[in-house]
């Protein structure tokens, strides 16, 4: 199954900092890149948008990452009153922790031994981007979007999550105005860990439901 770790390194080599080179700024200019430049310039010239707004928006999106969601999950594991607020209104609980999530309507769904939740958007690519940042590529593929609702157990096995028949799977299709985040089950043997240590166990996939929280 589609993980978004294509072997860039084998295609382009690595930069001195160990990252794959980005080909976008020195590759041949495409039709769609020209459209982006044209749309941006026309919006700026017509005073609909300022360059500073564009820069600020890119920085705001770059600042959002799965670490934000992991912090909220770790708090919910440590603080029962916060967990109750998180399950009642995940958006309000995330704002309470200081995360700027804009107008996001967020619902948290809790994984337990009896229930495993999986998030998908079959119609497009809805994702709690204002908390977790932009979705991974595989989340946007037609393959994931069509299979997650029809054969979630097979999809989960391909992600390395093999659940017994006794665990009920609940798939959540983000079809309208809500976005979803999975509250993963807290792994065993983590009683003595701090909130920050716990957050490091929470992967992006665990909050989509295609993974589980890591065991230390």
């Amino acid at each position: 199954m589609p993980h978004d770790h294509p072997d860039h390194a084998h295609d382009h080599g690595l930069s001195p900092s160990g990252h794959p080179y980005r080909a976008d700024n020195d590759g041949p200019l495409t039709y769609w890149q020209r459209m982006e430049i044209a749309v941006r310039e026309l919006l700026i010239e017509k005073a609909k948008i300022t360059p500073a707004e564009i820069t600020a928006q890119i920085e705001a999106m770059d600042a959002r990452s799965p670490a934000n969601g992991a912090a909220v999950v770790a708090r919910a594991w440590c603080d029962p009153a916060f967990k109750a607020r998180f399950l009642a209104d995940a958006g309000a609980a995330s704002r309470e922790m200081g995360f700027d999530i804009g107008p996001l309507n967020l619902i948290a769904v809790e994984n337990t031994e009896a229930v495993h939740n999986l998030i998908v958007c079959t119609l497009c690519s809805c994702y709690p981007r204002n908390l977790l940042g932009l979705p991974p590529d595989w989340y946007k593929t037609r393959q994931y979007r069509s299979r997650a609702v029809r054969e979630p157990r097979a999809v989960l096995r391909e992600f390395g999550v093999d659940l017994p028949d006794s665990t009920r799977i609940r798939v959540h299709d983000s079809t309208a105005d809500m976005r979803y985040i999975v509250l993963p089950a807290r792994p065993a043997g983590t009683d003595k860990m701090t909130e920050a240590e716990l957050a490091s166990l929470v992967s992006r996939d665990a909050m989509i439901g295609t993974g589980l929280a890591r065991t230390p």
Partner: peptide, 29 residues
């Protein structure tokens, strides 16, 4: 008004459902 509606997998996929008691939630107007 918008609702979250819960469906059983056997309602959606019949005999092809992996596990009939698994569910799917979607938002519907």
């Amino acid at each position: 008004p918008l609702y979250r509606v819960r469906f059983r997998m056997d309602e959606l996929w019949g005999k092809a459902a992996e596990n009939p008691g698994d569910t799917l939630d979607a938002e519907l107007y």
